[in-house]
Write a protein that binds this DNA or RNA. Structure first.
Lengths: 136, 136
DNA sequence: TCTTGACTTGGATTGCGTCCATCGTAGGAT
DNA sequence: ATCCTACGATGGACGCAATCCAAGTCAAGA
């Protein structure tokens, strides 16, 4: 377990048993869970936790920058606990498998000044698509 | 008006009055409409057209490669009639404005071999985020 | 220990999209 | 020009993901 809980406490996040289990579910994981999957795992640790609470906690973790929202398939959003380490995603068009990847260079730098239209850039999301080895 | 209707006919797309108005709505536009917005505009040209038909036609245009699906906000998908010209998107975090942009170089080439995990890459989507001039 | 404002609950509600049985029609065949 | 029939359109029901809300509960500072 990392120091996610410590960081949250230190930032004044009011700690409840529900928020603790949501954070714990995400902390150990290196996968990309949907809100329902997070809820299912949280229920194992705290049977009475509600869906709404899981949504609330996830939304706050996103605002705090501890978790990233990933929507790669137009269906349920997924939650990526690796938000503190910048990365992009590689998604299998066959089975939906998601891998964290690290492109070379800074993706932001590839948008020429003439293509910025006066915007103040704050970030960039890159989704590579393809077929994983199992899907040929 | 471009030759979208001609291309569709040439590819054996059965032409109905409903499909024609959906194609016409998209053809003149350089914006990124939701399915509901496409339906609203189609209704002006053909009052009795149904939402299901608009969804069907949009789905087929996507499969034909004439229109691209864009989901930049986790809400309704948007339909981009500029699919035949490769491009990426720049999205304003304030007002949701979407602009087509053209990064330098091929985004696919920025994923090193060691980060491809045996995938056969087929494409990449890049979404730049920032604030447009109106949103400061 | 007390107090209070923040958090949780779960059922209702919304938003977006899909499904399906039935009706209508485009376009080839005659 | 007319007929056929397979493909498309219809719209209401349905499903999933997510949010809302009013009432109950509780963490943490005083």
């Amino acid at each position: 377990m990392s120091d996610l809980l410590e960081r949250l406490r230190g930032r004044g996040w009011r700690m409840t048993s529900q928020r603790r289990v949501v954070a714990e579910v995400l902390d150990g994981e290196h996968v990309h869970l949907t809100a329902d999957e997070v809820h299912a795992r949280a229920v194992r640790l705290l049977p009475e936790i509600s869906r709404a609470t899981v949504y609330n906690a996830l939304g706050e973790l996103v605002l705090l920058g501890e978790v990233a929202e990933v929507s790669t398939d137009g269906r349920a959003k997924r939650y990526d606990p690796n938000a503190r380490h910048p990365h992009q995603h590689l998604v299998c068009s066959g089975c939906g498998l998601i891998r964290d990847v690290h492109p070379s260079g800074d993706p932001l730098s590839h948008l020429p000044p003439g293509e910025r239209f006066g915007f103040t850039l704050s970030g960039v999301e890159v989704t590579y698509r393809g077929l994983c080895p199992s899907c040929v």
